[in-house]
């Protein structure tokens, strides 16, 4: 079976673009002078995590809807475009939950279906709100306050940076493939291209590990990491 090249490569490229766009948008909102942006990150994280927990513990749809409206109010007060926020939170998880719940609506279990969808929507909206109103590096730093072991916090901080580097490498790779592939690709060939790229990314990772360790040594690393200092 031939695979339309623009489908497979274009989908990968669009995935990369949306990943970068999301991260950039998040950073943009995080620095707006809104309500949640002004709150100390640790307090904000604890507050929003409590609201996510509340959305899991609540057992009735009306109460969950009140919580959801409160989330929208918080988003508006934090100067997040409501259209952007609704788009960001409705696609894809709640729509997927709606599809899962569809059979319930035809079998008389409407209340269960509505409760399920509203719960997924509310908890996801709070999680997205936290990510949008806090610079990502700061959010990772707050994890130290919640007693997360140093090894995890250090790995989280370093990992976050490399994700962008890797995503850029992948984007460039797909652009290079797109510029060289004219016609359709057999799906097996497409699988070989994707896995070959994963293998070469791993090789690059090994090289990167050596370079980073050398850089750490040159900055005085003695075996005890100092993570995400002020």
């Amino acid at each position: 079976m031939k695979f339309k090249s623009h489908n497979y490569i274009q989908r990968s490229l669009l995935g990369m673009v949306s990943f970068f766009k999301e991260a950039i948008f998040a950073e943009e909102f995080a620095f707006k002078p809104g309500l949640l942006q002004k709150i100390e990150p640790r307090i904000k994280a604890a507050l929003i995590l409590s609201l996510i927990l509340a959305s899991i513990f609540i057992k009735t749809t009306p109460l969950l809807l009140v919580l959801y409206l409160f989330c929208l109010l918080l988003a508006a007060l934090s100067r997040i475009s409501l259209i952007f926020f609704l788009k960001r939170t409705w696609v894809f998880m709640p729509i997927f939950a709606l599809i899962i719940a569809l059979p319930l609506f035809f079998t008389g279990r409407i209340q269960e279906g509505v409760l399920f969808v509203v719960r997924v929507l509310t908890s996801l909206s709070f999680a997205v709100l936290l990510g949008l109103t806090t610079p990502h590096t700061l959010l990772l730093k707050t994890m130290r306050s919640f007693g997360i072991p140093q090894m995890f916090v250090m790995t989280l901080g370093m990992c976050y940076r490399y994700i962008f580097l890797f995503a850029e490498i992948i984007e460039n790779t797909y652009l290079a493939i797109k510029s060289r592939v004219g016609g359709a690709i057999h799906y097996k060939h497409g699988q070989h291209i994707a896995t070959w790229k994963i293998a070469s990314l791993w090789q690059k990772s090994l090289q990167l590990n050596k370079d980073i360790y050398d850089a750490m040594l040159s900055r005085g690393y003695t075996g005890e990491p100092k993570v995400l200092d002020e």
């Binding site: 250090m154 790995t155 490399y162 580097l165 994707a194 990772s205 590990n209 360790y213």
Partner: peptide, 19 residues
């Protein structure tokens, strides 16, 4: 650094669309 790089690697593997 390999732990962090390994984590980033496992994060981005999901970005590779496989036909």
């Amino acid at each position: 650094p390999m732990l962090a790089i390994g984590a980033a690697f496992s994060f981005v593997i999901m970005m590779f669309n496989v036909p």
